[in-house]
């Protein structure tokens, strides 16, 4: 009797777990299927959705070079901004974290508190002065404006510092005895050891950058400077009833991210749990 109860319990767990998964997957599946319909179709009727013809016409429509969509360009912009922001954030933060964690100097405490305070400032609350700065620097519609502001420096710093704090002192002492200065120590000891934390931070920073809407919306006003989150709604606003073409643009925008996710799933999940458990 007990085992029977256990079995029905298990059935319901399976039922709800997969039911939730199906519900959550439907929007994605629907996006993919409708992107293969002919341009101009308003495919929300399920029967129509599940029957051919399926074509690549909508994708061609999105990607055609003389169209209003600049998918290649926006993807390129998003990738460039994301990669540069990630690389700069991770290395610059790693150096600073190393200094605060392992070097002795006066005013260390003050710097640490100053950086920690930055963790509590949302970028959203400083977009107005930042935009003003971009205007006076003449950076509106340039990569400078997209890249430099809004890097997740304090968060990256904190995670990397916590990791470097944990490293055994003997390791660094040994390097010192061997006559290694801080630069060699960072390059030969800190960098190789903190690779996985740096990867985790990178993923986090990249996702943040990839999804940033507000800031690029303000500083990328020219179509050619837009990133994907700004470009997609701009492009789609031309389509009121056509579903296939907007969905094709959604698919194109999502495929790289989904592939990255499937490949690096473990790292991504580890990265998020690391940034969460502060």
């Amino acid at each position: 009797m007990n085992s029977k109860r256990k079995l029905t319990g298990k059935f319901w767990v399976y039922f709800f777990a997969y039911f939730l998964a199906i519900i959550m997957f439907i929007p994605l599946l629907w996006m993919i299927i409708s992107s293969f319909k002919l341009p101009g179709s308003t495919v929300t009727v399920i029967g129509e959705l599940l029957s051919p013809p399926y074509t690549l016409e909508s994708f061609k429509e999105v990607l055609k070079p003389d169209g209003t969509a600049m998918m290649w360009r926006w993807t390129f912009n998003s990738v460039v901004v994301g990669v540069i922001q990630t690389v700069i954030t991770v290395f610059v933060s790693s150096w600073a974290a190393f200094a605060v964690s392992r070097l002795d100097f006066k005013g260390k405490r003050l710097i640490f508190v100053l950086i920690l305070a930055g963790l509590m400032v949302p970028m959203e609350s400083i977009v107005v002065p930042l935009f003003n700065m971009m205007v006076s620097l003449n950076w509106v519609n340039t990569f400078h404006a997209l890249i430099w502001p809004g890097m997740m420096l304090p968060l990256a710093f904190l995670i990397l510092k916590q990791f470097i704090d944990q490293l055994p002192t003997e390791l660094l002492e040994a390097a010192k005895i061997d006559g290694a200065g801080p630069f060699i120590t960072w390059l030969k000891i800190i960098l190789p050891l903190s690779k996985s934390s740096m990867a985790a931070v990178s993923i986090f920073v990249f996702i943040q950058s990839w999804n940033n809407l507000l800031w690029p919306l303000l500083v990328a006003q020219e179509t050619s400077m837009m990133t994907l989150p700004v470009g997609i709604p701009t492009f789609q606003s031309n389509f009121a009833t056509d579903l296939a073409v907007p969905m094709a643009s959604n698919v194109i925008a999502s495929v790289p991210a989904l592939i990255v996710f499937l490949i690096f799933q473990k790292h991504i999940i580890k990265g998020i749990s690391m940034t969460g458990i502060k």
Binding site: M24, P27, W30, L258, V260, F261
Partner: peptide, 21 residues
């Protein structure tokens, strides 16, 4: 994977999907 996947979508893709739904 399925539970987490939507988080990988760009915010604009997410928005567009829900508007159409």
């Amino acid at each position: 994977s399925i539970y987490f996947m939507p988080y990988m979508l760009s915010i604009s893709v997410m928005g567009s999907i829900w508007v159409f739904i």
